[in-house]
C-alpha cells in the first residue's frame, strides 16, 4: 500500500464521516438517524459536518449518565471495530489521525522518530482511557472528562461551530482557552513527531491497541524473504520494528513498512492465515 493511496482513503473516510456540509455554514449540527451509529475513529459528534456519533463521546456519556446502565451497545461497537480492524482504524479511517499525518508533512527543522522515554510515555493513553473516559465520568456524574478537558477533535468542532454561530462565540470561556492550548500543542508537536496525540493521549487508540494482537486484519512477515536489512523499521513512523513484532500495539497498520521492504517480505494478512510455517507468531 503506497502512501498516496492511503492518503486518498483517509481523505475519503474523513469526508464521508463529515459530509453534512450545510453545518459548516449554518453552525447547526446534523440531527438525522445516521447518528444512531458510532463511527470507527475519533470524530466529535458536535462537529458541524459529523454524520455519525463519536465512540469515545458516546461511551463517556453512557458511563456518566445519572442512572447507570452498562453501555452494551457502544462497547460492543468498539470491540467489533477493535477485533476486526484493530488500529487499522487509526491508519486509514480516523479523521484526527489523518489531520496529524498532514501536519507531519509540514517542514520542520527536525523530525523526531523516537526519543528517550517515548515508549514509556505511550502508556499515558491507557491512563487517559481508564481515568478520563471511564472512572472519573462514572464517579463524578455528567462530566465527560476527556471531552471537556482534553479532546482536540472537540476543540476543532468548537472552532468551526463558533465561527458560524455568534451566540456560541459569546459563551466561550477558560475551558475553551485551555482546550485551544491543548490543540495548539498537539498541532505544533505533530509537525515534529509523527502522531503525538495517537502515541500519547488518544483513549480510542489505546482501546484499539488492546486488540491489535488478535484483530482480523494483521501484518505478516515472511521470514524466508526477510534479510534483516531493517528498512521497514526505519520507515515506521510509530517506531515499531515489524519484523520483531508485526502486530505490536503501537502499529497503526499504515503499510509504510509493507511498501518500503525491498524484498516484499511484509504483507497485510488476515486472522485465518498462518503467521509462520510453525503456526506461531513472534510476541
Amino acid at each position: 500500500m503506497d502512501n498516496k493511496k492511503r492518503t486518498i482513503i483517509q481523505a475519503v473516510a474523513a469526508v464521508l464521516q463529515n459530509g453534512h456540509i450545510a453545518g459548516f455554514f449554518t453552525g447547526r449540527i446534523y440531527g438525522g438517524g445516521a447518528k444512531h451509529f458510532c463511527v470507527p475513529g475519533l470524530n466529535c459528534y458536535s462537529c458541524p459536518g459529523a454524520l455519525g456519533a463519536c465512540p469515545v463521546g458516546s461511551l463517556q456519556s453512557a458511563v456518566s449518565a445519572w442512572k447507570f446502565r452498562f453501555p452494551y451497545y457502544v462497547l460492543g461497537v468498539m470491540v467489533f471495530f477493535g477485533v476486526t480492524l484493530g488500529r487499522l482504524v487509526c491508519g486509514f479511517l480516523c479523521p484526527f489521525g489523518f489531520l496529524q499525518d498532514l501536519l507531519f508533512k509540514v517542514p520542520a527543522p527536525k523530525k523526531l522518530r523516537t526519543f528517550r522515554g517515548d515508549m514509556y510515555l505511550r502508556y499515558l493513553k491507557y491512563a487517559v482511557l481508564l481515568l478520563m473516559v471511564l472512572v472519573l465520568p462514572f464517579v463524578y456524574k455528567t462530566t465527560p472528562f476527556f471531552c471537556k478537558y482534553l479532546c482536540p477533535s472537540g476543540t476543532v468542532a468548537g472552532m468551526l461551530l463558533t465561527a458560524a454561530d455568534e451566540r456560541l462565540r459569546g459563551l466561550l470561556g477558560w475551558i475553551f482557552t485551555w482546550k485551544a492550548a491543548v490543540l495548539t500543542a498537539v498541532v505544533l508537536a505533530s509537525a515534529v513527531i509523527f502522531r503525538p496525540f495517537c502515541r500519547y493521549l488518544c483513549p480510542l487508540g489505546a482501546f484499539y491497541a488492546l486488540f491489535n494482537g488478535v484483530s482480523a486484519v494483521r501484518l505478516k512477515v515472511d521470514s524466508g524473504k526477510c534479510t534483516g536489512c531493517g528498512a521497514c523499521a526505519s520507515a515506521c513512523g510509530m517506531a515499531v520494528d515489524p519484523v520483531k513484532s508485526p502486530n505490536h500495539a503501537e502499529c497503526i497498520r499504515c503499510g509504510q513498512c509493507v511498501s518500503r521492504c525491498p524484498h516484499g517480505a511484509i504483507s497485510f494478512s488476515h486472522c485465518l492465515s498462518r503467521s509462520s510455517p510453525e503456526g506461531r507468531e513472534k510476541a
Binding site: G52, S58, Y73, L75, V79, K148, L168, G173, A180
Partner: peptide
C-alpha cells in the same frame, strides 16, 4: 454486546447525545 444494547434501545441514547451540541466537547462546558 451490540445485540443486548439494541434490545435495550441504547442506540436511542447515542442518537440523543449526538444530535445535541455537546457544550463540554466544544469547550464551553
Amino acid at each position: 454486546l451490540i445485540a443486548a444494547g439494541v434490545a435495550e434501545g441504547q442506540y436511542h441514547q447515542v442518537l440523543a447525545k449526538a444530535t445535541r451540541i455537546c457544550l463540554e466537547c466544544i469547550g464551553i462546558g
